[in-house]
Design a protein around this nucleic acid. Sequence first.
DNA 1: CCTTTGACATACCGATGGTATGCGAAGGTA
DNA 2: TACCTTCGCATACCATCGGTATGTCAAAGG
Lengths: 195, 195
Amino acid sequence: MADGTRARQREQTRRTLLAESRKLFAAHGYGAVRLAEIVRAAGVTKGALYHHFDSKSALFKAVLGQVHEEVGAKVAATADAEDGPWEQFTAGCRAFLLASTDPDVQQIMLIDGPAVLGWTLWRALDEGASARHLAEALGALIDAGILDPQPVEPLTHLLSGAMNEAALWLAATDDPRALDDAWAAFSRLLQGLVA
Amino acid sequence: MADGTRARQREQTRRTLLAESRKLFAAHGYGAVRLAEIVRAAGVTKGALYHHFDSKSALFKAVLGQVHEEVGAKVAATADAEDGPWEQFTAGCRAFLLASTDPDVQQIMLIDGPAVLGWTLWRALDEGASARHLAEALGALIDAGILDPQPVEPLTHLLSGAMNEAALWLAATDDPRALDDAWAAFSRLLQGLVA
DNA sequence: CCTTTGACATACCGATGGTATGCGAAGGTA
DNA sequence: TACCTTCGCATACCATCGGTATGTCAAAGG
């Protein structure tokens, strides 16, 4: 009977491959992870891997897609919980900074992403997930008259890059006040934008 | 006769390897460049390459060192030509942004660097070259009372990351006003820092 | 000269990403 | 139920690439 055994099994294998490869990519970096490790961790063979993904980089791209989605969802949820464009904007930035502290996000999204897929494709993926929210928030601030009218795109990249690098630094330092210091500095920068 | 033929030849080979590999790394990215291409372009064999460098990543590290030095020198020279800490600071930032527009710098320093060598080592190399100037300039601004006293390190990373990402975006866009827009936005951010 | 040293070239190896093919069970059809 | 098709995956295999071990010949040195 067509009870969907095939589809369920297929989906199960795909999820396992994604989950295990994500762990390995995050822990050791894309270049240091061998396909043999991934399929061993997932309990399948290379045949299964290549049945689901075209290449090692395509598998990585799928993993990166997951990470992007998760970060984007967190940012959107946090921002939507606030009232007023400025509060939504700052809350979203803080949520992004916090989300980017996760080691998986660090290695996969910030370090390997641009190098493995190329900066252009990485940018496009990021655009569809987190950077879009940032651009929208900035646009809302300008519409509300809180920010002077100005091109949104360069500002988006400046702030996005600042938060990315700050997150990487936060992960590398062990100063417990680092997060507060970084957020304070970032807030000061944002103050320069208000009309 | 010991006229230094050996030393000159050795240095010549090393320089050629660095120059040719730099071209290839910049053009195609670290992962897409084969050692066979490099040695062919340099007119030598793999024996020569491994006589001068321990591994492919060691060769890349040497190339990255060159790029870092060049960028750091440009930033320092531009900043030193100005008078007053604020002028030195902004001139240095602008010089860095311009220098980072070069495709070699983009691919080697900003994209592949962290992924190939790991973010920690990359950070250390960057610290010795360009980021150090930024931190010193910020310290001078605080000493001069232009900026409020605050931890310099997080601010360094925020600004460095902002400029890195902005530079990558500048290279990907074809809007001729992009550079001016980006600099205007960056200047606004800096305004938030002044006391 | 004769020996040593060093800057390579040559030949080779193991590992790894990727492919071609085989197979057994799920799912449709009569 | 018998049969055929499809599909999800395993097995076997290949080509390439980073890395190494060894050979070679000219410069350096006494």
